[in-house]
């Protein structure tokens, strides 16, 4: 147990950052970004990676642990009696279900969309864009608020394990390395794949969420909202499982908006005409999009698609 504890402690400290950088370097070396990483995209990805990790989160944790004893003097280690695995289960559900809702509402409530758009504007998948978010989106939902409070209440150990497990799953789901492919390919692994793809986010299900198409049998950007657990999409009927990967990613109406406008909208606006991030831009750029009719070829694709009834 001490060995596992050490692994998780190191992962939480510097390990996850190192792993992200190593995976990102591998993706880059294998040409998985396929010359899509322009200077504007690169700057946005790097700024979104560095600022929350090294400035925002440490600041929130420091301020939280400084003021929680003043606000809730009797709360310190109040729940330290909760057994580890129960703590893990309670925090995993509370954390990930809240993030599911935060994510889903940013897609389904039109005025929230522009705060989350930055995460979807990249036309590639990978480590480089995994932490790509608008700053306002990050500060209004940061796992660090919950983790800071739980550490104070005495559930820090369970929270640490949830944070690391979740980070590994979310990282794997965004990666351009399709690690889940063998599970669909080899017959012996398929029963395991059936459970896996319903329980957690995989590259196949999460890539579908980042597709620039919807309803073509693979792309599904109006669903598959789960972060660590895909189970929420199964329960609420907001997901599809196809075991396929989209041909293209991003948003069709992307105008390569300036990195600072994507990172700090609405503080900074885009100068691009007709952009969702421009001063007089539309709230949702594809609101008038006409859903294409399903062709015979697409019907063939649909035969292999598992659609979750809502």
């Amino acid at each position: 147990m001490k060995f596992i504890e050490d692994i998780f402690n190191h992962l939480n400290g510097w390990g996850l950052t190192a792993l992200t950088l190593i995976l990102g370097a591998c993706e880059f070396a294998y040409g998985l970004y396929a010359n899509k990483w322009s200077k504007n995209e690169r700057t946005l990805d790097i700024v979104s990676f560095i600022i929350p990790k090294f400035i925002t989160r440490p600041f929130i944790a420091y301020v939280g642990l400084l003021y929680l004893p003043v606000l809730f003097p009797g709360g310190k280690n109040m729940f330290s009696w909760v057994p580890f695995w129960w703590g893990f289960f309670i925090i995993a559900v509370a954390d990930d279900l809240t993030q599911y809702w935060y994510h889903r509402l940013h897609h389904q409530v039109p005025w929230l969309w522009r705060f989350h758009r930055t995460h979807h504007s990249a036309n590639y998948m990978g480590m480089a864009m995994a932490s790509r978010q608008n700053f306002i989106y990050t500060i209004f939902f940061s796992q660090i608020y919950l983790t800071t409070a739980l550490v104070y209440l005495g559930l820090g150990y369970s929270a640490l394990f949830v944070t690391v497990t979740k980070s590994l799953i979310v990282m794997g789901a965004h990666s351009s390395i399709k690690w889940d492919k063998p599970f669909y390919k080899y017959k012996i692994l398929r029963p395991f794949a059936w459970v896996l793809e319903r329980l957690i986010s995989t590259p196949a299900t999460h890539h579908a969420h980042h597709a620039d198409t919807h309803g073509d049998g693979v792309g599904y950007y109006k669903g598959n909202f789960g972060n660590m657990f895909f189970l929420w999409d199964i329960i609420f009927g907001t997901g599809i499982i196809t075991r396929q990967y989209p041909e293209s990613y991003g948003i069709k109406h992307y105008k390569q908006e300036e990195w600072y406008a994507q990172f700090l909208w609405p503080i900074f606006k885009s100068k691009k005409q007709g952009s969702e991030l421009a001063a007089n831009g539309p709230m949702v750029g594809d609101a008038e999009e006409v859903v294409p009719e399903v062709t015979a070829r697409e019907n063939e694709i649909f035969d292999n698609v598992f659609i979750i009834p809502s």
């Binding site: 909760v82 057994p83 129960w86 289960f89 309670i90 559900v93 509370a94 279900l97 809702w101 329960i235 609420f236």
Partner: peptide, 13 residues
């Protein structure tokens, strides 16, 4: 439904 899901692990414990 989510309210029930949030409470479920605590109730099970």
């Amino acid at each position: 439904i989510s309210i029930f899901l949030y409470a479920l692990p605590v109730l099970l414990m």
